[in-house]
Structure formats: structure tokens, C-alpha cells
């Protein structure tokens, strides 16, 4: 899941200072699950904005709506009539939703209401942790199902480095050393000898380093193109 966190209210108020009518747009996907931009958060933020501006004596008309997913153009089509009436959209979707929204409504200001943090897992109520960096070429087969790219502070492939102590990372005593986890899990599976193999340098071209990525599956494409 994509984990996001709502931006501070002052920053958002700053974005909207020039507008009189705004649509606060929530998303029913990941940001709903991580409690950053679902229907409830959209409602709370709408009230905050309206009240804050009312207090300033510069009322802000706030419309609110939460759609199934902001990363799909189809769902955005469904709110075109609402968008027509506002000066700007404040999107509470992840960075993907915000951009899809901006692309769907090229003549409107689209402001980000959240900081998109990482791809992760929900550990506890109110606690999330990173698990994947979408590097494009999964190595979990070699590392016991624990990702060194996302979970090692140095993303090294032949760890643990010299800063691993008591299973924790030198960078932060609250962070598990990914390589200690890999080692211990492979040991439990009787596979620790596999770590003698030197993992070769990674081909980062499958990752962001190859430029913005795009996936085309011709088997799924319709003859008409779109």
C-alpha cells in the first residue's frame, strides 16, 4: 500500500490563499486505508479549512468529495461537473492521484494535501513501515523475502555492514537491520550458506535510474489503441 501523511494545515492554507472556492478531493484507495485522505479525513480537513478562513474573515467555499480512486481517469470523469464550479482542487490522494487529477483537469489548480511517504505495511494502529522501493527487478528470492533495497539504510546487497549490532541498524536504533533479518531468516530455513554467494551489482536501469518508467503490455492492448 502507498503510505501518505497529511500536510500541515498552514502549508495547505498557504496553497489556497488565493482561492475562494475549492474542492477537497479524497481518494478511496491507499490513503483511505492509511487514514490520510479518505472520506473522513476529507471531511475533517474541509471543516478545518472553512473554519480557518472564516476566522480570517475571508470565507472559503468548500466542496468535498471522495471518489473510488484518483489514479484512474474514469473516476475523475465523474466529478467533472463539480470541478467546473471551483477555483482549485485540493487532492488528498497520493502523488499519483494528485498528478492524474492535474492531468484530467488541465485548467484547474490542483494542490497536494498529503506528503506521499513510501510503499509499506501497517504494523500497528498509527504505525507504518517501508517495505518496497519499486526497484523494478525483485531480489526477494535471494534475500529470504526481506528487501535490502527498501529496508537496508544503504541498500547494500552483501550485508550486513559494520554498523549492525544486536539486530539493529546504525542509522536508527528503532530500525531493524535488514541484513540481520535476512541472515536470521535464511538461517531458520537452513539456507544461510546461500549468503556466501556474492550478489552482483544491481541493474538499476529497471529502477528510477533508467528514467521515468512505463509498462506496456501488448497482450492487453485493444486493437483500437485506447
Amino acid at each position: 500500500m502507498i503510505i501518505a501523511e497529511r500536510k500541515p494545515i498552514d502549508e495547505i492554507l498557504g496553497f489556497l490563499s488565493q482561492h475562494q472556492k475549492v474542492l477537497v478531493l479524497g481518494c478511496g484507495g491507499c490513503v483511505t486505508v492509511c487514514l490520510a485522505g479518505g472520506e473522513k479525513e476529507t471531511g475533517i480537513l474541509s471543516s478545518e479549512l472553512a473554519m480557518a478562513r472564516s476566522k480570517e474573515g475571508r470565507p472559503l467555499e468548500v466542496a468535498q468529495k471522495t471518489i473510488e480512486r484518483q489514479c484512474d481517469f474514469e473516476y475523475l470523469e465523474g466529478i467533472r461537473h463539480m470541478v467546473k464550479d471551483v477555483d482549485a482542487i485540493l487532492s488528498l490522494a497520493c502523488g499519483i492521484g494528485i498528478q492524474t487529477c492535474a492531468e484530467a483537469f488541465p485548467d484547474k489548480f490542483v494542490w497536494p494535501g498529503v506528503n506521499t511517504k513510501f510503499l509499506g505495511v501497517n504494523l500497528n494502529v498509527g504505525e507504518w513501515a517501508e517495505r518496497c522501493q519499486a526497484c523494478g527487478q525483485c531480489v526477494l528470492d535471494k534475500t529470504g523475502g526481506i528487501c535490502p533495497v527498501a529496508r537496508c539504510s544503504k541498500s547494500i546487497f552483501n550485508g550486513p555492514c559494520g554498523g549492525s549490532q544486536n539486530g539493529k541498524c546504525e542509522v536508527d536504533p528503532d530500525t531493524d537491520c535488514a541484513w540481520a533479518l535476512i541472515h536470521d531468516r535464511l538461517a531458520r530455513l537452513g539456507q544461510v550458506e546461500s549468503l556466501r554467494e556474492i550478489l552482483p551489482v544491481k541493474d538499476w536501469s529497471y529502477s528510477r535510474d533508467g528514467g521515468p518508467r512505463k509498462l506496456v503490455r501488448e497482450d492487453l492492448e485493444l486493437e483500437s489503441g485506447k
Binding site: 473522513k40 471531511g43 475533517i44 471543516s47 472553512a50 473554519m51
Partner: peptide, 11 residues
């Protein structure tokens, strides 16, 4: 009760 209800009430 929820933060949302309080906020809507305070509007």
C-alpha cells in the same frame, strides 16, 4: 464520536 462530528458541529 469522531473528530469529524465535532468539526462539523463547530461549523
Amino acid at each position: 464520536i469522531d473528530v469529524l462530528f465535532f468539526m462539523k458541529a463547530l461549523e
